[in-house]
Amino acid sequence: MIRVEDIHKHFGALHVLRGITLDIARGEVVVVVGPSGSGKSTLLRCVNLLVEPDEGRVFIDGVHVNTPDIRPEWVRQQVGMVFQSFNLFTHLTAVQNVTLGLIRVKGTDKDAAEKRGKELLARVGLAAKADAYPAELSGGQQQRVAIARALAMDPKAMLFDEPTSALDPEYIREVLDVMTALAREGMTMIVVSHEMGFARGVASRIVFLDEGKVLEEGPPEEVFAHPKNERTRAFFSKILR
């Protein structure tokens, strides 16, 4: 479904990704963990080409996408993204946030888009908040709208960039619940997160990233219980309680 092949990325003198290869099958939920600065967010952004890799190839559904022949806008319609700081469009209501992509990218007519938007908001439990502006919503609600907004484009896969780390503790649960439901429905997901409960319960695979390289990967039980790498072990001993 998604394949990244030996990708490298530099930001100036900083070598952020140093040859990462990952294969993600349809319906798989991959949780990427690692210390800050290890390149997790950059890796995600390379998949939907918000960041263009310097070297290496990205495939979506077998199509080599980081070539000049393919419009990055097309790639981004295939892969939805949810951000750490939600990034809801401030000037639009919840339902307008969800329908913007439908109307302006897919060309869906307004009424159909609105109907679909309300369905999606209902799906994330926010039917009642359709006409609220982002500033009138709690962090958890905003993040759920952001998930609905990404889903509106009918993506083949979803990227989550630390979706709960900007949230107050009381709102984390509701966002993780929506993500869990999504995973159960068979959505292909790459999640950068340190929510180990979520990783244990939902992930089909954990990928441990450090200094731009994959140090370890495997099923959660295995990686958590018997980390092979010294750095992985040190990292988990710090975050697992």
């Binding site: 319609q77 401030t90 913007l100 990404a150």
Partner: peptide, 26 residues
């Protein structure tokens, strides 16, 4: 906020449409 453009681009809006429908109204 730069996150607004990033979110618009992530939805598949072109540079111009991100400007027209997200940045400019704000």
């Amino acid at each position: 906020h730069s996150g607004q453009v990033e979110a618009a681009r992530a939805l598949g809006l072109s540079r111009w449409r991100a400007m027209r429908y997200v940045v400019l109204p704000q």
